[in-house]
Design a protein around this nucleic acid. Sequence first.
DNA 1: TAACCAACTTGATATAGATCAAGTTTTGCA
DNA 2: TGCAAAACTTGATCTATATCAAGTTGGTTA
Lengths: 241, 241
Amino acid sequence: MCRMNHRRSELGMRNPIQCNQCSMQSICVPAGLVSSEIDKLDKSSREPHVYSKRDMVYSPDQPLNSLFAVKSGSVKCYTIDSEGKQQITSFHLTGDIIGMESISNGAAVTYCEAMETSMLCEIKLNRLFAQNFTGVDKNLLRLLSHRIGQRNTHYLNVVNTTAEQRVASFIMGLSDHLYEHGFSRHEFKLPMTRTDIANYLGLAVETVSRVFSSLKQKDIIDTKQSILFIQAPAELKQMAN
Amino acid sequence: MCRMNHRRSELGMRNPIQCNQCSMQSICVPAGLVSSEIDKLDKSSREPHVYSKRDMVYSPDQPLNSLFAVKSGSVKCYTIDSEGKQQITSFHLTGDIIGMESISNGAAVTYCEAMETSMLCEIKLNRLFAQNFTGVDKNLLRLLSHRIGQRNTHYLNVVNTTAEQRVASFIMGLSDHLYEHGFSRHEFKLPMTRTDIANYLGLAVETVSRVFSSLKQKDIIDTKQSILFIQAPAELKQMAN
DNA sequence: TAACCAACTTGATATAGATCAAGTTTTGCA
DNA sequence: TGCAAAACTTGATCTATATCAAGTTGGTTA
């Protein structure tokens, strides 16, 4: 049987699900809690908050003692330098936990903005710290450790690589992430603009556009509006290296 | 009185100090332990291991359930891609804790190599996990969170910046780190080669060399062998932005 | 459904930094 | 202490990608 049939469409809106069915519950909720206790969590932790396109989840220097789980949709995190220039540091899709870099000083360090209508759950850190839930701390520790690895990987993808490698690796990264979270590997919506992709990868928009055109011409990918089709995954993976 | 007089020379070898005097003890040793209990820690945790230049601390895929504290000297972490090309992901000096990205899967993900004679203490993770030392877990969590921020900062320094900005920011970063750890802010030894700096910053060696020459010509820095002097910190900081 | 604005594309040209080349200086070892 | 190898520097040339320019396409709103 084709695995694809079981997969959710990336294109439609998903239904919000309860904490006790959520794939992120090992992080969100102290591991020891049973279903009846989950119901007692305050509403802001139990129910996802809906953000519209361009809504800000948090801004630099804002006190922040929570993480956020992206239940659906997508966000971008960015800084703005002294000359007012935006620099995107990360994109986050369904299944990502964001805000880990602010644990160290209790304040946000980037802007975090919804790129489309998105649902995020707030995970209050004081709940994780309240008791000696060492098991939970371990999960959290693994999560942060994994994020450090991801940041290194992104760095490796941008330093000393060609424009084509960066874009190929970027697309493969999205594809892998979506597949791990139950979506199609070869057909998905790109929630970010070419300008955002370019900024994230340290390239000019025009260069990103040219790479997309070139990949399309080689029948490696195709696009229809903001939907991307990966037609030759092996070739793309090889480019990404 | 000049603060400099109190600072250790970066140039000479430091004496190993005991755990109970060590500035890293909040991370290395479960916080509750008193001096008499520290003595009971096994020798590998209590005493730093000495590495000679080019010695490998760990290699990718090697099982790793420890962090390492750099007590003196310096190391570089790097990956080697499928074409055998080295890419340096980080440098670490006295006071750094390394290996955090391997917590998530219990195995090293990079090579870690001593750049000079260095002393590192092994911090076994199972000791931190053994009991419900939530306080320690919190320290560790903050440490990892901080590292994520550092990785972002390094990324910001390399993406969409000029060669001059990268080098200026790199030098300022070293200067700040060394100052925070009790060394001189304006005069220190560069333990890495120009080739390593170039690789780390995504530049060619020749470009790094030219930037150094240009900064020297502008009387912003000076070098004598591997000693670097920062002569105009304000200008350098402004370049780094 | 028009019309406007943002996003995207494609082409022409400019340039920062890579690469190639040929020294010079420094380091480490016999 | 001297010599070889490695590290570094400087100059000349090349190139990948930025920048500038001028469209085209697509999405949103009246």
